[in-house]
Amino acid sequence: TTTITTTNEEDARRIATEWKNKGYTVHVEKRGTTFRIEVR
């Protein structure tokens, strides 16, 4: 599992989409101002 964190919502969406397009399972969680993107 790879975890990526960013405070930028646009980055979070872009990163999540990129990983999904590669065939990975992506889970995005917002904690306060931080977005945690888990890639499996």
Rank of each mutant, 00 (worst) to 15 (best):
N8I: 06
T34K: 08
V26T: 04
E29S: 12
W19M: 06
E38A: 07
A16W: 06
R14Q: 07
R13L: 14
E18D: 08
E10Y: 09
R31D: 14
G32E: 05
T17K: 10
I15K: 02
E18G: 05
T25H: 13
N8P: 01
F35I: 07
V28E: 03
I15A: 03
T25G: 05
I37W: 00
W19E: 01
D11K: 06
R36Q: 11
T2C: 15
T34N: 08
F35C: 02
W19A: 04
N21L: 13
T34H: 12
T7W: 10
N21D: 10
N8W: 05
R14N: 06
E38H: 14
I15D: 01
T5D: 07
V39Q: 02
T25W: 13
T6E: 04
R13N: 12
Y24V: 02
R31N: 13
V28M: 08
T34A: 08
T33L: 13
G32D: 06
T34F: 13
E29Y: 14
F35T: 03
E18Y: 15
F35M: 03
E10W: 10
E9K: 08
T3W: 15
T1E: 07
K22R: 13
G32N: 05
I4L: 09
R13I: 14
T3Y: 15
R13T: 10
T33Q: 13
K20I: 14
Y24K: 03
V39K: 02
T25Y: 12
V28H: 01
T1D: 07
T6N: 02
I4F: 15
K22N: 06
V39C: 06
R13Q: 11
V28A: 03
D11Q: 09
I15Y: 05
V39N: 01
V39R: 04
T17Q: 14
N8T: 09
T3P: 04
Y24M: 04
E9P: 08
T17D: 12
N21R: 11
N21M: 13
E9L: 10
T25S: 11
D11G: 04
E38V: 15
T25I: 14
E29L: 10
T2A: 09
R40E: 08
I4A: 03
T33H: 12
T7Y: 12
N8G: 05
K20W: 08
E9D: 05
E38K: 09
R31W: 13
K22P: 00
H27Q: 08
E18Q: 08
T5G: 03
D11P: 01
I37S: 00
K22S: 05
I37H: 00
T7H: 11
K30M: 09
T6R: 03
T17W: 13
V39P: 01
R40P: 04
K20M: 14
T6G: 03
T6F: 05
I15H: 03
N8E: 06
H27P: 00
